[in-house]
Amino acid sequence: MIEVYSEALDKTIRTGRVIGKINGHKKGPTMVFFGGVHGNETAGVFALHKVFNHINPKEISGTLYAITGNISALEANKRYVNNDLNRLWKEASIEEIKSKTIVNSDEAELLEIFDLIQDILNKDSGPFYFIDFHTTSSKTIPFITINDALINRKFAKQFPVPVVLGIEEYLEGPLLSYINELGYVSLGFESGQHTDKEAIINCESFIYLSLAFSKAMSSESIVGFPIYYKQLQDQSYSIHETFEITHLHSIKPDDNFIMAPGFKSFQIITKNMLLAHDSNGEIRSRYNARIFMPLYQKMGKEGFFIIQKIKPVFLKLSEILRRLKFDGVLVLLPGVSWQDKRKKVLQVNLKIARFFAKSFFHLLGYRSQTVEKNYLMLFNRERTSLKSMYKHELWYKKSH
């Protein structure tokens, strides 16, 4: 099996960006899968090779793409070469890279993927689905990460794995955040630990479930569909709740950060528990919560995250408030206004912002934020979501 996977990686490096493209026999969704955006995370690459070599185009509706992420980093078996490719996808960064006469390895990868995405969006028809496969340096159950938009929540909840919201509030420039800002469904699937064979199997299972849930392929035509579902259900220990990130421990190269051994994602931690060490000494938990994606590799700026479960009543409340566009009422308050007529960015005077709880803005879909002059700028994925593209999909209507 190791030889087969090595051959798949060698083939990926030789053949280039597109692992595979399948044109279905009739109209349907366009599904775009990414593997290897981080070069030391190969599970998605292996799984995409295997599945795309087995799929019968006559059983597909729509168009499927399997795309390689960072080819240079895959060849070097490194997370990245010069810059983390999954932190470059900000509009300003993309424009800056496009204006350069000389780009480094990772920037060249971005430009190729950017052009390919634009080409797909221009030539293919929706609804569009984008799925990015990753693995973690620590032990973990499989899980989904999403930007907190209702279209993402609804599609993600079909899978028998936990869903983690709010990654966009703590990370700048992930590929899927950029795609979600364009308005499309975009999911990140973390399938397991880097070197775990189960991570590959989990990716394969996720691909088949994605095809069924999007109606690119009927579940009846997927041999072993219940097995794929049970694989993810068992691997996640039937944890199917929704969590949100509440804290990130960021690190710098000179911090000499060392994670305490043995932690795995979703593990319950208690206040004052020893989590890691750095140049300043011990790092202990300030929360009774769960640890998420603890860092056990040399490359990376995120030491660990803290997550907490979201009660279903708050998920439902946030859906109701977003449908009512309740954030439109906020602009009636002094010190609160829209940045422009597009009504995508809410600006709140910093003197007023301190009276609002962070969780209140989360209910309305505002998670990503920056400070400009005297204002807190809040970005809402809900107002950029292309809901009309998905409103007739079964998974969207069911959740109503």
Results as ranks from 00 to 15, higher is better:
Gln297Ala: 15
Gly300Met: 01
Ile283Tyr: 13
Asn272Phe: 06
Met293Trp: 08
Pro294Thr: 02
Arg286Ser: 10
Lys271Cys: 06
Tyr296His: 07
Asp278Met: 06
His277Ala: 06
Gly300Ser: 05
Met293Arg: 12
Lys309Arg: 09
Gln267His: 15
Phe266Tyr: 00
Ile268Gln: 03
Lys271Met: 04
Ala289Pro: 09
Asn280His: 09
Asn256Lys: 05
Ile283His: 13
Ile268Pro: 01
His277Pro: 12
Pro294Lys: 01
Leu295Asp: 09
Ala260Ile: 09
Lys309Glu: 10
Gly300Pro: 02
Gln297Thr: 13
Asn272Pro: 02
Leu274Tyr: 12
Met259Ala: 06
Pro294Asn: 01
Ile283Arg: 10
Arg290Gly: 04
Gln267Leu: 13
Arg286His: 03
Asp278Lys: 01
Lys301Asn: 15
Ile306Asn: 04
Met259Pro: 01
Phe257Val: 00
Met299Gly: 04
Ser279Asn: 14
Lys309Cys: 05
Leu295Lys: 15
Ser285Thr: 00
Phe304Leu: 00
Asp254Ser: 10
Thr270Asn: 09
Asp255Asn: 15
Phe266Pro: 01
Gly300Cys: 03
Glu282Lys: 15
Pro261Cys: 06
Phe305Asn: 05
Ser279Leu: 14
Lys298Trp: 06
Ile269Ser: 00
Phe266Trp: 01
Ile269Leu: 00
Ala260Asp: 12
Arg286Tyr: 02
Met299Arg: 00
Lys264Leu: 14
Phe292Ala: 00
Lys264Gln: 15
Leu275His: 01
Arg286Ala: 09
Gln267Arg: 12
Leu274Lys: 08
Asp254Trp: 02
Pro261Ser: 06
Phe257Ile: 01
Lys301Met: 13
Met299Ala: 09
Thr270Glu: 06
Asn256Ser: 03
Leu295Thr: 07
Ala289Asp: 11
Glu302His: 07
Thr270Ala: 07
Ala260Arg: 07
Ile268Asp: 05
Arg290Phe: 07
Arg290Cys: 07
Met273His: 12
Lys271Thr: 07
Gly303Gln: 03
Phe263Met: 10
Thr270Ile: 03
Gln308Thr: 15
Met299Val: 11
